[in-house]
Computed example of a mutant assay.
Amino acid sequence: MDIDLNSVFDRWSLFISLYLSEQIRQRLDSTVKHACVILTLAAFILAVTHMNIHRLAPESEIYGPGIKSVFSIIALAPYLSIPLAILNCMGLLFYNPFLKKKVHPQKSFAPSICFRIVTRGDTPEFVIQNATYNRDLCLAFGLKHFIVEIVSDKPLNCQEKNRIREIVVPKSYRTKNGSLYKARALNYCLESHVNLLARTDWIVHLDEETLLTEASLSGILHFVTEGKGDIGQGPISYANGKKIENWITTLADSLRLSIDYALFRFQLAFLHRPVFGFKGSYIVIRNKVEMEVGLDNGPDGIAATMETIAVYWGLFTLKSNEFFVVQKESPTASKRESHIKVV
């Protein structure tokens, strides 16, 4: 007796749509996808284990004990990544990356938020365009107390003044410990004659190519109003809904999103500390923490980004159980204008 699988599938889909609520359907859908990820992960681990279980180093009688020892060390080198691989697996196992938790933060009671963008000023039109987009999105979202700050090494001559503030770092400005580049620019924002924020205000650090989304704004508001931590961070997607200029670089950068949902989510949601790393963008931090810790840690090791400052920030309470994605386009070699990240 033949069974029409399409008919069975259609009836099952009709049953689900009729008898299950939208919330239950979304949860079931995310659970099924999460289960597929776990099964794929298990199959990959079993396959790799099976392939390597009989892989032996060259026999000593053929190459000699010295050469055999060298080959044995080389064969063991890939296994140095096992600890991070295990933690990545734990992040995927314990936290469902497909489950989208809806939150409804109180916008009218939200604290003041500063979206701070740091740039060298080489592409002023591009930076102003993205800053204006983020400003307009915040206004359309209903955010009351916010400002978009553009911190640049060169004047941008931004004509947009409504909720947008341009800060030009003087060429003569030097920090006490000689910090450079991004750390220097951010430290300038903490100077008493520049910093207009209260200690209880919040700062969202963004790159010049970063675009906010309504989901990321909901997540940021939920985090800052929940009051469970002083520092938070979420994942960044690449070319989400945007035209992709370079598929190779976009796909390469997309690997970083898997690390966001696996390793970084595990360390922030479970360990509450940036033990294994910290991105230099999409950081939500209370202003008082940044003022107390400071960003002037010298030119060695922190010249370009804020990742190593996470070591200092780790001394404070760090929690980010909610993940709300921002978007970011992958860099290409030919077009600076295509570098869009979406948060």
Score class of each variant (00 low, 15 high):
F316R: 09
V275N: 01
L318K: 04
L268V: 14
F264Y: 14
M291N: 08
L268H: 13
V325H: 05
F278Q: 13
L315V: 06
L271D: 00
L268K: 13
R265L: 07
A304P: 01
L318E: 01
S320R: 03
S258G: 01
G298F: 08
S281E: 06
K319T: 00
F278M: 12
V325L: 09
M291E: 07
D260G: 05
Q267M: 04
K328N: 15
F316T: 06
L263A: 04
G277I: 09
M291C: 12
G298Y: 10
V326E: 02
S281D: 04
Y261L: 15
A304W: 08
A262F: 02
D260I: 06
R265H: 11
F324R: 14
P274H: 08
M291A: 12
E290W: 13
R273A: 04
S258D: 00
V289M: 05
V275Q: 01
F276M: 11
L268E: 07
L263M: 05
E290Q: 15
P299N: 00
A269P: 00
A262G: 07
A269D: 01
A310K: 07
V275S: 03
A304L: 11
F323V: 15
F276N: 09
L315N: 05
A303D: 05
G314V: 05
F323T: 15
M306V: 14
E307G: 06
I259Y: 08
D300Q: 04
V289I: 14
L318Y: 02
F323C: 14
V326F: 04
K288E: 01
F270V: 12
E322N: 11
I285D: 04
G301P: 09
N287W: 05
K319Q: 02
V325T: 08
D260Y: 08
G280V: 04
